[in-house]
């Protein structure tokens, strides 16, 4: 298939459609709105479900309902809406139904602005709502990858019966790049056997999140943790750029990573041996991959579009074996390669 020039948000929406998403429930919010708009046009055309909900609170609970019925389902939003979805995410997490959520991050806190940011890192990686649960988090850094990871998100969601969050940002969502979309998958012919579809010829299925007995609840928590451990063992993904001889290792994800890539190129031209590890899975975090690079690396620099969130995970991975510096640009300010280059130069001095 030929490459098309695609807006990131549209690429995600169309990739989801081709991955066989049966239902989309969402609420307009910049900078993800093109995603919802694409769904509004395409889903009914294909005889699938599109519904603009009254709020993100309702949207995530519609998603929860459809997922309980065994449908392949998703929603998308940005930080303020993801905050409202935290409640539903918690219920979905314990119910262990597969759900894909797209977060096109913008500047915050509060209403903030509509510029690209990565301030939701902690929100999406540290918890799925209240209680004790996590989601798989995928972070694309190009339009092509946004499409690819959307497909992967559905696979992982169903494989592990979990929430998968595709964490992009306003840059990935709004920019256009040539990308190749996957072929159209057919919709699943049957619902999973755990789904609530009417108790025909079987015992009733019940999906609930209330377990008053603490021992039962504890066992469920440990089961979820065991699943997380399995995900940590099997699903870590990261991209390594020029790390083989790197003295300065930069860790960055999403938009910040692709901007950093240009800075690294420029640094190399000036004879500085800089390399990058780009987490593609923010959860599971590529801690081991970072650790493995520490023998050669003298300095670690984290570049992220916030005041320093992923840097905590990097510090945990580095465990004091190298100094870890942060270059953060929060609030919707997008760093340019030159300023990252300046930071790299200053670290070398």
């Amino acid at each position: 298939m030929a490459k098309e020039l695609l807006v990131g948000n549209v690429a995600i929406a169309e990739a989801a459609i081709r991955a066989g998403v049966e239902a989309f429930f969402g609420y307009p919010i910049t900078p993800q709105t093109e995603l919802l708009e694409h769904m509004a046009g395409r889903m009914p055309e294909l005889g699938r479900v599109f519904l603009q909900a009254e709020s993100e609170v309702a949207a995530i609970n519609m998603v929860y309902g459809a997922a309980c019925a065994g449908a392949r389902v998703m929603t998308s939003s940005s930080g303020p809406g993801i905050s409202l979805m935290q409640e539903g995410l918690s219920y979905i997490a314990i119910s262990e139904v597969p759900v894909v959520v797209v977060d096109v991050m913008r500047g915050g806190p509060g209403l903030g602005n509509i510029q690209p940011a990565q301030g939701d890192y902690n929100q999406v990686t540290k918890t799925a709502g209240h209680g004790d649960s996590r989601s798989i988090v995928l972070a694309p850094s190009s339009v092509q990858e946004a499409a690819d990871l959307t497909g992967l998100a559905f696979d992982l969601a169903e494989k592990y019966r979990t929430i998968v969050i595709v964490a992009g940002d306003g840059m990935i969502g709004q920019m256009m790049e040539p990308a190749e979309l996957p072929p159209m998958k057919s919709l699943p012919a049957t619902r999973p056997d755990w789904a609530v579809t009417g108790a025909k010829g079987r015992l009733k299925n019940v999906i609930t999140s209330v377990f008053l007995d603490a021992e039962v609840m504890e066992a469920i928590n440990w089961r979820l943790k065991a699943k997380l451990d399995r995900i940590q063992a099997e699903e870590v993904r990261c991209e390594l750029t020029l790390v083989d001889d790197a003295e300065i290792l930069i860790v960055a994800f999403g938009s910040a990573a692709r901007i950093t890539k240009t800075a690294i190129r420029e640094a190399r031209e000036q004879g500085i041996r800089a390399g990058m590890l780009r987490p593609i899975t923010l959860l599971p975090f590529p801690s081991t991959a970072i650790e493995e690079l520490l023998d050669r690396v003298q300095t670690v620099l984290v570049v992220e579009m916030n005041t320093g969130q992923m840097v905590d995970d990097v510090r945990l991975a580095v465990q004091g074996r190298a100094p870890v510096h942060l270059y953060g640009r929060p609030g919707g300010s997008v760093p340019v390669p030159d300023e990252i280059l300046d930071v790299i130069m200053s670290l070398r001095a």
């Binding site: 239902a23 519904l51 309702a58 309980c68």
Partner: peptide, 10 residues
Amino acid sequence: AMATGIKRVE
């Protein structure tokens, strides 16, 4: 909302 999600796909 949850009922809506279920009903729309079933």
